[in-house]
Write a protein that binds this DNA or RNA. Structure first.
Lengths: 237, 237
DNA sequence: GCAAAAGTGTTCTCCTTACACCCATGA
DNA sequence: TCATGGGTGTAAGGAGAACACTTTTGC
């Protein structure tokens, strides 16, 4: 027995499809989340994730890149689909299915380019305000995913400038996991991947000795992306 | 500057929201995929994933459970959201965003309960037919996810009957990964989790000696689900 | 008694961990 | 010269991998 598909297309109720971005940033000390203010009748001036509607002619990936660009003017951002949220009551205005993407950007890049069309602000993960709808659940899931992902891949790069030092990267990992790591073991494990290229330049102004900058070996990184490593001591996560 | 949200709700074009299920099964030897025949004008009698439309009053989880139940009459199935597919051209009839769920069931359970409303069939993963739309990409992603998940959690249970033997579970893992595993190391690693309860009963009829049945310790399993283990020799995956 | 699958133990190696000292530099 | 953070080496313990023989029982 076959399903009469064409009939079904016509009788189905359609649904609004939105997209929300969980945007993580790192300022050198703390992990941060980028939020925007939204004005909605009942809930005026609530902070929320940056979001938007999926347009008729664009894919979800395109929509997520567009929406991120509208806010930050950044392209080539690490962006990954996280989960789709579709509870009928999640948006009290009208039923909306929202596809959540999570993004990693470095705060420096962003600050130059912020769009004035939005009232946006970085929040420490420790001090998040009340969020719109089910956005808190999205953030929760995103941080969990970030932890998992960072524990398996050296994904932390994406949150740092192109040139970064190993101590910076370590601080980032410590911020993500809320735990202290041993610098000797961390740098050994990291360098053993051969994904980092040491530069001649040293970081100035922060420490007296100065730490060497590294950059990522893009090619090798892409090739090895699906290689599972283990960036964490066993006790954590 | 605030976004005028209410205005935006009214002017957005809506979209069909569907759901597709990648249903894995295991028959003791091979990993299988459950497909249904769909009749669509241009592409008559194409095999496809089991799918359906998300109804106005139901959540995505509810929809995925309902759709699976319609086909298999099974409840309490392992079901997990995989990814949402939204390319504008993925469905030539009309733009449809599809949320893919992946499901694990054991073939025995299913065979008694199959609904006659669908023409459904198990396919070996080695011999999949051409699939509708982007369903092949969904299957691809699902098998990858199954491999990852199985490498970290003893999730294979879900594909087996309630009582199962360790050699059965090993065969399942070998089917998932397409690799042979050492039975001594496999059973040691598995038993070290203390997630299995040995039963007094032995499997009859398959081997002469007979293997002891085990069942899972549900409580412990749920508690430890997020514990990452490592069920695979390093070389694999 | 033999074929076929079940079940079990040990050694070696490598990765992980824990831990402490010297180095370079700016003030 | 001293304070601050950067950078490296090593020894001990544990987990993973490789590997072979005994057990059970249906035929």
């Amino acid at each position: 027995m076959l399903i009469d598909m064409l009939h079904q297309y016509q009788t189905q109720t359609k649904c609004l499809v939105a997209l929300d971005s969980i945007i993580f940033g790192f300022d050198g000390h703390e992990l941060k989340l980028l939020l925007v203010k939204r004005g909605i009748e009942d809930e005026h001036h609530t902070w929320s994730l940056m979001g938007g509607w999926v347009q008729p002619e664009e894919s979800l990936e395109q929509a997520s890149n567009r929406i991120l660009f509208e806010l930050t003017s950044l392209t080539d951002i690490y962006l990954e689909q996280l989960h789709t949220f579709g509870n009928p009551m999640r948006d009290p205005v009208e039923r909306t299915v929202s596809v959540a993407y999570f993004a990693l950007i470095n705060v420096e890049d962003y600050d130059h380019k912020i769009s004035k069309n939005f009232e946006a602000q970085w929040f420490s993960m420790q001090e998040l305000p009340q969020l719109l709808f089910d956005h808190s659940a999205m953030v929760e899931m995103a941080i969990e995913h970030l932890r998992y992902k960072a524990s398996q891949h050296p994904i932390g790069f994406e949150l740092l400038p192109e040139k970064f030092t190993i101590p910076q990267l370590q601080k980032l990992y410590e911020a993500i996991f809320g735990a202290e790591l041993d610098k000797r073991n961390f740098s050994r494990k990291l360098l053993s991947t051969h994904l980092l290229v040491k530069l001649d330049e040293k970081q100035k102004g922060f420490s007296k000795k100065g730490a060497f900058y590294y950059r990522i070996n893009e090619e090798k990184y892409k090739k090895q992306f699906n290689t599972f490593l283990n960036f964490l001591p066993n006790g954590i996560a």
